[in-house]
Design a binder for these strands. Structure first.
Lengths: 247, 247
DNA sequence: CGTTTGATTGACACGAGTCAACACCAGTGG
DNA sequence: CCACTGGTGTTGACTCGTGTCAATCAAACG
């Protein structure tokens, strides 16, 4: 049914019926978090890991002077805070942008998986490496592209990621973020984000209105952004084959 | 002896004698790579994973227009390309900055570890999460700090990381990179890197001369850079305890 | 030695930030 | 039903940080 985590991990590695069963059974404590709330905050160290079932969230950090940086967008299937299980405490926060359905996974369940379901554990490692690849791409995006291209690249990425989880229809998708959120993501001021969005609009590429992004020219947008989806490592089933072949 | 990988992973998780033995035995094919060469290149898909035993390397990417971005510095104990084992092909390159001693680990060895040494596998996952944390920090660094602070922050990070692997003596360490490398790391032009280094010099914080960084005022540098080492997650032994306690 | 690569500095251009005014809703309460 | 409010989006004028171009210098190298 709605085991978005299984679907995500199964894209990376062949998972057995037992693997699927364990992923079905560990997802406990579903709850609804309203928009604009923290799912987990900087410094927290709870005994559960959080998984987005539905909705839109972001990783962010507040700097000493009050500035905020958004370092990732989380969509259905993404785990918020594996850190909690493996590291001491959160070094950043995860907050909702829209209302989110969130599930919780206990430490004990994760420990069980790490011992008894190596393929699942490997899939989590792969997911972590893909997250790294995305962060590297954002780094080059912010470091080396101008404002309009940065935003175009970001929107292209969201388009592709949301397509995979079936949240795009007719070239449009919900994007419940403000221009100020975009600014904190792209390392820009909100005023300049506004100007850049106007450029994308005038170029006939996209319009962002009332939390909905309409893409008028998908290929044009990707070309404008120099977007190359390789880094998202979609459809990496090869890794699973390799695990088996190598033994 | 020089099993830097074991030392690194043992900082995260309790490793057994068997774990140590496997880590000693999988490291094959040591070789020397001269400075300025690729250890592994974008698009490669070899059958071995590379580990830095000694020296200084970087992850980088060349964009279509020829621009380069450096997304990470690799020091002894760092694995270059777990991606090779788990994902299809490299989406970036790893090149040496100084001469490097590099070891190779076969896919079969990694597959063996994933099945039979869950604690080692977990330690690799933790290392991956720490790498993510570093990338997030770089993102806020480039996105929200001015040129001089960016560079100061980068140097502070290198200081701490190199201290851990014993490469710092008397507040100085080898830094075999050009100002142009720094520029591609910080998202700046090399001219502006030069100007920013002059500021740090004039402030009495650091001098970078002949590939050697001399830090004159460690606390001053960290304060200037607003450097908070939490994100490096040094000394995270807790994770290992937690793994055991959770079961 | 000449040659090359990297460091340094100045003059100028330009992209992005800041400040400020105003428009546009969505929600609230009278 | 309307006035009020606060958050968000939009636009212009001006400032400032960083990029670009170019000349010079220093060090490394064959």
């Amino acid at each position: 049914m709605d085991n978005v985590l299984f679907e995500k991990l199964a894209r990376f590695v062949d998972l057995s019926a037992a693997d699927k069963h364990i992923l079905d059974s560990i997802v406990e404590g579903r709850r609804i978090v309203p928009p604009g709330r923290d799912i987990i905050a900087d410094g927290d160290n709870p005994d559960r890991v959080h998984l987005i079932l539905d909705g839109f969230a972001c990783r962010y950090r507040i700097m000493p002077d009050g500035q905020r940086t958004i370092t990732a967008y989380l969509i259905p299937g993404d785990i918020c805070d594996l850190h909690v299980f493996l590291l001491n405490a959160m070094d950043h926060s995860v907050g909702t942008l829209s209302e989110c359905r969130v599930a919780e996974i206990s430490r004990a369940s994760l420990a069980h998986i790490s011992k008894n379901h190596p393929n699942v554990w490997t899939a989590l490692l792969i997911a972590s490496l893909v997250d790294q690849a995305v962060l590297r791409e954002w780094l080059t995006n912010i470091g080396r592209r101008n404002a309009a291209k940065r935003i175009a690249h970001l929107l292209s990425e969201l388009l592709v990621r949301l397509e995979v989880v079936g949240r795009v229809a007719g070239g449009a998708f919900d994007l419940p973020i403000t221009q100020s959120d975009l600014a904190d993501t792209a390392g820009l001021s909100s005023v300049h984000v506004n100007r850049s969005l106007k450029i994308l609009r005038d170029e006939g590429l996209v319009t962002l209105h009332r939390n909905r992004l309409m893409i008028h020219d998908v290929e044009g947008l990707k070309a404008f952004a120099e977007f190359d989806p390789r880094y998202l490592h979609l459809l990496e089933r090869i890794a699973g084959d390799r695990l088996r072949a190598a033994i």
